[in-house]
Design a protein around this nucleic acid. Structure first.
Length: 270
DNA sequence: ACCCAGGAAATTC
DNA sequence: GAATTTCATGGG
């Protein structure tokens, strides 16, 4: 199987990026390598010095992988600007400077963050794993793609019982049906003004303001999105003295990810 | 037994 | 309308 290499990559730590709560499908293999599935492609990724190496990937997918890891954006510059906004922001950036916001598949982000509600990250990953194993296509031995909207749309809540997502089963099905029948057009939503995009997503049962913001940030790469979960609400009050997220500007979503990870790793601050 | 987990819907006041 | 309760499941 072939390997893709991206040379001279800065501002990327795979561990910090893949294990900061924005995605749920990567498993560390040891030695700093991670295995996962993106847009139906299985791969194992590692850093070799300042090169990002993606094994199991095809040359034809080079652009897709570059997009996934957001390699076209100058994170050094963005982190520098964000750090000037507030001293705690600078602390959060220093704590995990290798975080990038991934370009995840929109439907996967939608379902993943529906599952995230009133749940913990470890169990979210387990539910997503079982959802893929039960209803996703097998793309290699024991490796499964994320299920399509069409497949999930045809299920009943009881069919999802082996996934053990509890009360979220009907939310998953409603989301899949609205995506499959075009009621919710995720690619069209990508281009809408922020509030309209949010309102469009909130037509789905089980999608409120916070989940919509997560879908916009992680699935549609709207970097101005700023999901406020329990950790972020506390952080903005306690660490940022009630500052408005808008103070972070057009890359507020990136700031959010640094603050979220920093807060979760420092519970003693609260 | 109780409480909480990257919330949101349903119910009650 | 705003505040409270409920919703599955699993771990501490």
């Amino acid at each position: 199987m072939s390997e893709l290499t991206f040379e001279r990559i800065s501002d990327l730590s795979l561990r910090e990026t893949l294990d900061c709560g924005q995605c749920f499908r990567w498993r560390e293999q040891g030695g700093g390598s991670f295995s996962g599935v993106v847009r139906g492609r299985a791969a194992t990724v590692r850093m070799d010095g300042d090169s990002l190496v993606i094994s199991g990937a095809k040359e034809a997918d080079r652009a897709m992988w570059a997009d996934y890891f957001d390699l076209g954006l100058d994170y050094a510059k963005i982190k520098d600007e964000l750090s000037r906004v507030h001293p705690v922001m600078a602390d959060a950036v220093r704590y995990a400077p290798g975080i990038r916001i991934l370009n995840q598949e929109p439907f996967e982000a939608l379902i993943s963050f529906i599952i995230s509600q009133n749940n913990n990250i470890k169990r979210i990953a387990g539910i997503v794993h079982r959802l893929c194993g039960s209803f996703g296509g097998e793309i290699a031995d024991g490796v499964y793609a994320f299920p399509t909207a069409e497949r999930l749309a045809a299920l009943s809540p009881d069919d999802l019982e082996p996934v053990r997502a509890g009360f979220r089963h009907r939310y998953i099905i409603d989301a899949a049906q609205k995506v499959a029948d075009g009621t919710v057009d995720l690619e069209a939503i990508r281009a809408l003004p922020y509030d309209e995009a949010r309102t469009a997503l909130m037509q789905i049962t089980g999608v409120g303001v916070k989940v919509a913001d997560c879908v916009l940030l992680y699935g549609l790469h709207r970097l101005d999105g700023f999901p406020l979960d329990v950790w972020m609400k506390r952080a903005m009050v306690v660490l940022f003295d009630g500052m408005s997220p808008r103070a972070f500007g057009e890359y507020a979503g990136i700031a959010q990810q640094y603050i979220f990870h920093y807060s979760r790793m420092h519970p003693e601050l609260f």
